[in-house]
């Protein structure tokens, strides 16, 4: 009774692999949907926006995808690490504070307890909360397939709303974040109708290192203002090596408007999104200038 297609009826096989190799083998055969926390996949499948493939693979038992640890000058975060685990991690809180702030603004406790960072990245929503700080921090996705593993900087990973360069046979294993330079500090700003349980109308991650009176290693990433999360490179260039004075901040906010391409949807108009990027970027930069 294929017509009796309640959400799960299209699934012919449900697999729960215990090792990465096993999982990659299943993926190599094709026709697979990947399930991590399911907080995107299930609502999307129910709403008919995603068609589940004949094989559903639950990756939550793969030990290779867990853990937060220092590795080779960076911090490696397993794809299965939940938002709650990120928020509870002292390492994240101390060294990746931008990411920590995003996790603090993320959904509700119930969702944070199951939602994974890998799911957030692979869902590739331009409003995804961890994407923005991870992009600002210069993180890379670690993608594995039977043929081998590759690393893709997040700036290249996202290709459109809900789309990434991950190939169907690839699994996101981890995200690697280079350790920010000493003194790097930042602000994550999530803007919506209400302070909790909301999808960003726009979001910003702004970080820099104070060097005397000037800011260096300036990073500005924006969410929900383009088909993918983006770095505001023109705005970064305006601030890099300068003091965060009013003129510089205003110029950077103006420059950011050339970096973004917002649309109008149920959450906001493109006009309002531009206004918010300008106003909130000014606010965030003056804040960062004082950190």
């Amino acid at each position: 009774m294929a017509e009796v297609a309640a959400v799960l009826d299209g699934i012919a096989r449900y697999v729960v692999p215990r090792t990465l190799d096993e999982a990659l083998g299943v993926l190599a055969a094709g026709g697979v949907s990947i399930l991590a926390g399911g907080t995107d996949l299930m609502p999307q499948a129910r709403a008919g926006r995603v068609r589940l493939q004949p094989v559903l693979i639950n990756i939550r038992r793969l030990p290779e995808l867990t853990g937060i640890e220092r590795a080779g000058g960076g911090i490696r975060i397993g794809a299965l690490v939940t938002i709650t685990a990120l928020r509870d991690s002292a390492l994240v809180r101390e060294r990746l504070h931008l990411l920590w702030q995003a996790c603090d603004h993320f959904a509700s406790d119930q969702i944070r307890n199951v939602a994974t960072v890998g799911g957030n990245l692979c869902n590739a929503s331009p409003a995804g909360d961890t994407l923005i700080p991870l992009l600002a921090l210069g993180a890379s996705a670690v993608l594995a397939a039977t043929g081998g593993t590759r690393r893709v900087p997040l700036g290249e990973f996202f290709t459109g709303p809900g789309r990434s360069c991950r190939r169907p046979e690839e699994l996101l294993v981890a995200v690697e974040v280079p350790e920010p330079p000493a003194g790097f500090a930042g602000v994550f700003c999530k803007h919506g109708t209400r302070p909790a349980l909301d999808i960003s109308t726009i979001s910003l991650a702004v970080g820099a290192r104070r060097d005397g009176t000037v800011l260096r290693d300036v990073r500005i990433a924006c969410g929900a203002v383009a088909p993918t999360p983006i770095r505001a490179l023109q705005a970064e260039a305006v601030v890099e090596g300068r003091a965060a004075d009013a003129a510089t901040i205003a110029a950077a906010a103006q420059a950011a408007l050339a970096d973004i391409h917002p649309i109008s949807d149920v959450r906001a108009s493109d006009w309002y999104r531009r206004e918010m990027v300008r106003n909130l970027l000014q606010r965030a930069l003056s804040h960062v200038g004082q950190l």
């Binding site: 109708t193 209400r194 302070p195 909790a196 149920v266």
Partner: peptide, 23 residues
Amino acid sequence: LMVDHGVIRNPNFRDYKLVTAPE
């Protein structure tokens, strides 16, 4: 409740925003 030319554009709790506890 956004009604646009006879169509309700936000028939769900994601886009129809009730007040939540912190507010």
